[in-house]
């Protein structure tokens, strides 16, 4: 009985996860510039993959420990990679969407490139 309840909770969690993975991809597809895409991509896919992993850990008996480890790893590394991509692409000269206001970061990048 307990197995059944945990299992179906897991199925619901995997559904939520898969749905947010889809939303992340849709955000990547629809949003107008790189930084907005990065936002949708990072947040939605992080929750999606974490929820999927924990759900799978609940469905299959004895997998929960490893799947929690995987979930924690993903939670720690996903923001770092998106941060690295955002910073690198701003410095590589990607222009933000024209409605971006204010742009305080531009001053810093400009100052640094002047110093070089």
């Amino acid at each position: 009985m307990v197995d059944l309840i945990l299992g179906w909770t897991g199925v619901v969690l995997v559904f939520i996860g898969v749905f947010f993975l889809f939303l992340g991809a849709l955000g990547i597809f629809r949003l107008p510039d790189l930084f907005n895409r990065l936002q949708a991509g990072t947040k939605a896919t992080t929750l999606g993959v974490v929820s999927t992993t924990i759900g799978v850990g609940l469905i299959a008996k004895g997998w929960l420990v490893f799947s929690l480890a995987l979930a924690i790893f993903l939670l720690m590394t996903n923001p770092i990679s998106s941060h690295a991509l955002g910073r690198a692409s701003y410095r590589a000269g990607v222009k933000p969407y024209k409605g971006t206001n204010p742009d305080l970061y531009a001053e810093k990048v400009k100052k640094e490139s002047d110093q070089k």
């Binding site: 799978v56 996903n78 692409s89």
Partner: peptide
């Protein structure tokens, strides 16, 4: 349209694929 956009797409792609591997394992 730029290489950075492609990198962002790739990042999302790999995260989704990780989730897919987990479902395949199940």
């Amino acid at each position: 349209p730029t290489n950075s956009d492609r990198a962002v797409g790739l990042d999302t792609w790999t995260t989704i694929t990780t989730g897919f591997w987990v479902i395949l394992a199940l």
